[in-house]
Amino acid sequence: MYILVIGCSEVGYHLTKALLASGHEVVVVEKSPARCDLLTEELGSVALQGDGTDQITLKLAGANRADVVIAATDRDEINLVACQMAKHVFQTGRTMALIKDPKNEPIFQILGVDVVVNSTHLVLESLEERIPGRPLLRLMNLRSSSMELVSITIPEDAGVVGRRLGEVELPPRSFISLVVKSSGVERPSGDLLLDAEDEIIAVTPSGGEQTLYDILTGI
């Protein structure tokens, strides 16, 4: 596949390295001559020095034959412009952008960026996974429906311990998709008895995770 990477931030560099290693044809458009030199030294002639939001530079980089354009500069604003250019001027099939401000995710999606990778969200997820006593994990953002797949572990003192699943009132549009017990994985049914340390895998509207968390872990 021919992949165009805009911006050689740290992420851009490691991404390019990984893409090359998996056999893709990659060109990186990077503004800083020093970073371009570094890229050439480390990875061979993959760098094109220039502005990734400039149409002439993008054309030189072969944007019109790129299968994927990945905007990976360290600024959300530039990543948006690069993706919009790729999509509207060069009809790139798939545009992907890296963002830092989690609140920018919806606007990128509305404006047609195909894949939005929220680095803050990723860091948060991996930290949450390791913080004891905070058993709420965001597993996946179900993009098109603005829903979130989450995992919530029921603490010992939670009010729902010893109650049946059917008795637990869930927030609107939320549902349980799986219950992981120490004895194995159970499909959710109204009769299923909830125990401490059960892991609940649920789907809930984005932003509403806390309500579900409070219901399942509240005393």
């Binding site: 939001t53 600024r75 604003e77 948006l80 920018n104 606007i107 509305i110």
Partner: peptide, 16 residues
């Protein structure tokens, strides 16, 4: 004076 910031925020204002 930051054109990219103007582009992003204008589109947020308009579409969100």
């Amino acid at each position: 004076e930051d054109e990219y910031e103007n582009i992003l925020t204008s589109q947020i204002a308009k579409h969100i």
